[in-house]
């Protein structure tokens, strides 16, 4: 699992995840995700390169998202593949963390 971050205009933090968010993958990004969530107020989680997402991977998204939200921040999910999006929908997380496939729409949702 690879993870990288980028600061976008408007105070948006984009965190790019790349690889398999299975048990091992989730463990490998947890620390970095929690560090990013500790300071971000507008967090865009880029799932475009995530090829697999299981419930441990969901956990690696939910816990940081709750941290950002608890400080009054916002979180959006960006560009999941159809199967990854299906996991998000099955868990009901998509109803609480908006999923966008357009970068402009994702950033606008964080304003």
């Amino acid at each position: 699992m690879q993870i990288s971050t980028e600061e976008l205009p408007g105070g948006v933090t984009r965190v790019r995840l790349d690889g398999r968010m299975d048990i091992a993958g989730a463990q490998s990004v947890d620390l970095k995700m929690n560090i990013v969530a500790g300071s971000a107020h507008r967090l865009l989680i880029d799932l475009e390169k995530v090829e697999f997402l299981g419930s441990m991977g969901l956990r690696s998204i939910v816990i940081p998202a709750r941290a950002v939200h608890s400080r009054g921040g916002k979180v959006v999910l960006f560009a999941p593949t159809p199967m990854v999006e299906s996991v998000l929908k099955t868990s009901g997380i998509d109803a609480l963390l908006p999923v966008h496939h357009s970068l402009d729409a994702a950033i606008a949702a964080l304003e």
């Binding site: 419930s55 939910v62 816990i63 939200h69 109803a95 609480l96």
Partner: peptide, 22 residues
């Protein structure tokens, strides 16, 4: 249960729902 707010989002407990769906 399906969470109603982000504060209710539980980090676990999705496995059975996912297995039924997939």
């Amino acid at each position: 249960p399906t969470p109603q707010s982000i504060d209710e989002l539980q980090p676990g407990g999705q496995g059975i729902r996912l297995m039924r769906r997939f």
